[in-house]
Design a protein around this nucleic acid. Structure first.
Lengths: 153, 153
DNA sequence: CGTGAAAGTTTACGCAA
DNA sequence: TTGCGTAAACTTTCACG
């Protein structure tokens, strides 16, 4: 799955992560190359799936999404059918920003963005009514110290 | 901090979150409006900071970043000076994708993206040598079930 | 406030080296 | 692979309905 990228590819990706709206000429200038090679490389990396998509990053506070919870989940159920239902529920809920299956003691972690604590409770009630869960711990974020989509290259 | 957005604004944001490279004409068509109003609204939302930036989303696996850890941190230190040093360390380390200060028992949670477990251990050793930490639990992600930057509108 | 068109940029690609 | 040149497409502004 990993792909061979040279130094120029990495510089281009770094620029696109900083600001995907820069023109080709601008990017070319910054990475010390010119339009055609930059364009060819960008296209190749899109085709290969290194660049998945380009998106607008919005400010959650400005949209009134002021609460962020990390949810640690333990389950007693490990059958395929239960898991399918649980994953489906997570994928369908837009307030679930991230969901990971974990190694060890805790089975799943979620990151959930909502308007306020009440909205979180509604989400929680809906989730446990859809699937059986053994134990849930919610961690409330007081302050987002850092949040980046910029992967280290 | 929250901003008044109407239905058309929300539709535009939703399109930009799906794909920020769509042309104005395309977006206008999808949201049932036309170029100029869409352009005016996008500019206003950028000025107001609702749209923070636009960025390329890369595939971490394709870049060889195959390990993702959630790190739960408890500290005994709560002085301003310690905190300043700790936050600075987090902001400077590119492998820290997210960092939140929490309410309750656990003080901080981090999301850390690295090449492998060895790279995580290097990060961990470096961090604890920079600042005193009372207790750390690392949760290793086995599977990224969901990961989105698309906020619920 | 929306429509349409005009002017200036940028992209996307062919072709030569 | 890169660099140049260009047609087509897109962005941005503005005058008018």
């Amino acid at each position: 799955m990993a792909v061979a990228l040279d130094d120029l590819d990495r510089k281009i990706l770094s620029e696109l992560q900083k600001d995907a709206e820069q023109s080709l000429d601008e990017i070319a200038r910054r990475v010390g190359s010119s339009k055609t090679p930059v364009w060819n490389r960008i296209r190749k990396m899109k085709d290969m799936g290194v660049i998945a998509r380009t998106t607008a990053i919005l400010d959650p506070e400005a949209l009134g999404l002021e609460a962020c919870f990390f949810v640690l989940i333990r389950t007693s159920e490990h059958e395929a059918d239960w898991q399918r239902k649980f994953l489906k529920a997570l994928k369908e809920r837009p307030e679930v920003m991230e969901a990971h299956r974990l190694a060890g003691d805790i089975d799943y972690i979620l990151k959930v963005r909502v308007k306020n604590a009440r909205a979180y409770d509604q989400f929680y009630q809906a989730l446990i009514s859809e699937v059986r869960i053994y134990n849930v711990t919610a961690l409330l974020s007081m302050e987002e110290i850092k949040s980046t989509t910029t992967l280290p290259l």
